[in-house]
Amino acid sequence: MNRSAVSYKNHRFPPQIIAQAVWLYFRFPLSLRLVEEMLLERGIVVSYETIRRWGRKFGAAYAKQQRRKRPSRKDIWHLDEVVITIGGRKHWLWRAVDQDGYVLDEIVQARRNTKAAKRLLVRLLKKQGLAPKRIITDKLRSYGAARRDVMPTVEHRSHKGLNNRAENSHLPVRKRERVMQGFRSAGGLQRFISIFSAIKNHFVPPHQKHSALAIQLYRIRAMAQWKAAARAVS
């Protein structure tokens, strides 16, 4: 999304309120109506439909301006897929996270086969700019076939017990799925997770930050960067 394409012009609410509403909706497992209620408690009267429109218009612009983690050749990619039913039809959300649980990419596809796995790997290579040290997957054979075609020199470990990091990364989306009472379309799911995961990456401290003080300082800096991103969208 081009930054100049998004503007607060003709919005009667200031950027701070819009950014706060978008942050609440994507950062926490809250429905649009709950975000509406939380804003109302603060004296801000806005409908949940307006919050929905804010999320679609500004969410991607905010997320795009957050810093991305720098790729490394020492990275380990954990790949997994989870089924999500949309309109009575099965879709597969394919996800890649690194050794720290940082979401690298996600893609909604209608198939669970080698072609779908290959598409994920090609997107990852293009987005990261370099191959990882290793990929770890469950025992789905499609990963091995795709890896041999796309990155044949990269080590591949296929074991369900080694892939808990990727499997656990599905849990936040599962929570949102329940709160939202399901997703309405594959395109809507793709738009949502692209913003949701970027914001999650931004606010979740790296694993090496163990102390409570280090985590608090990290989150304070993350919030300052989020507010700066809101001001940059003008």
Rank of each mutant, 00 (worst) to 15 (best):
F196A: 09
Q190N: 05
P205K: 05
P206T: 00
H202V: 01
N201Y: 07
A198W: 07
A214N: 06
S197I: 04
Q208Y: 14
L217D: 11
K209S: 09
N201F: 05
H210A: 10
L189Q: 04
N201C: 04
Q208E: 12
G188D: 01
K209P: 00
A214P: 01
L189E: 02
I195K: 01
A198K: 09
I195M: 04
F196K: 12
A214G: 08
I193T: 14
R191Q: 10
S197T: 12
I193V: 15
V204G: 04
V204P: 05
N201S: 02
P206K: 00
S211D: 04
A214M: 08
Q208G: 08
P206S: 01
I215D: 03
I215P: 00
F203I: 03
A198R: 14
S211V: 05
H207N: 11
V204R: 15
H207E: 11
H210F: 09
S194M: 10
Q190Y: 04
P205Q: 04
S197C: 13
S211T: 15
F196S: 11
A186G: 08
A186N: 06
N201H: 01
K209E: 13
N201R: 05
V204H: 11
L217Q: 15
H207T: 13
A214V: 04
G188S: 04
Q208N: 13
Q216G: 07
N201A: 04
A198G: 06
A212K: 12
K209A: 11
F196Y: 14
I195L: 03
F203R: 00
H202K: 03
G187W: 11
I193G: 06
I193Q: 08
L213D: 10
K209I: 15
Q208F: 14
K200E: 14
S194G: 09
H207S: 14
L213S: 13
L213E: 15
L213R: 15
S194I: 01
I199C: 08
P205W: 07
Q216W: 13
R191H: 09
L217T: 11
I199F: 13
F203H: 00
Q216S: 14
F192C: 00
G188I: 01
L217H: 14
Q190V: 01
G187H: 09
F192D: 06
P206G: 00
Q208A: 08
L189D: 00
Q208M: 11
Q190L: 03
A198I: 02
L189S: 08
L217F: 10
F192R: 05
G188H: 02
K200R: 15
H207C: 11
K209N: 10
S211Q: 04
R191K: 12
R191Y: 05
R191E: 09
F196W: 10
I215Q: 15
N201W: 03
G187Y: 10
P205E: 04
R191V: 06
P206R: 00
I199D: 04
H202W: 05
L213C: 09
S194H: 09
I195P: 03
A212Y: 09
N201L: 03
F192N: 02
I193Y: 08
V204Y: 09
A198V: 07
P205M: 06
L213M: 11
H207W: 03
H210E: 13
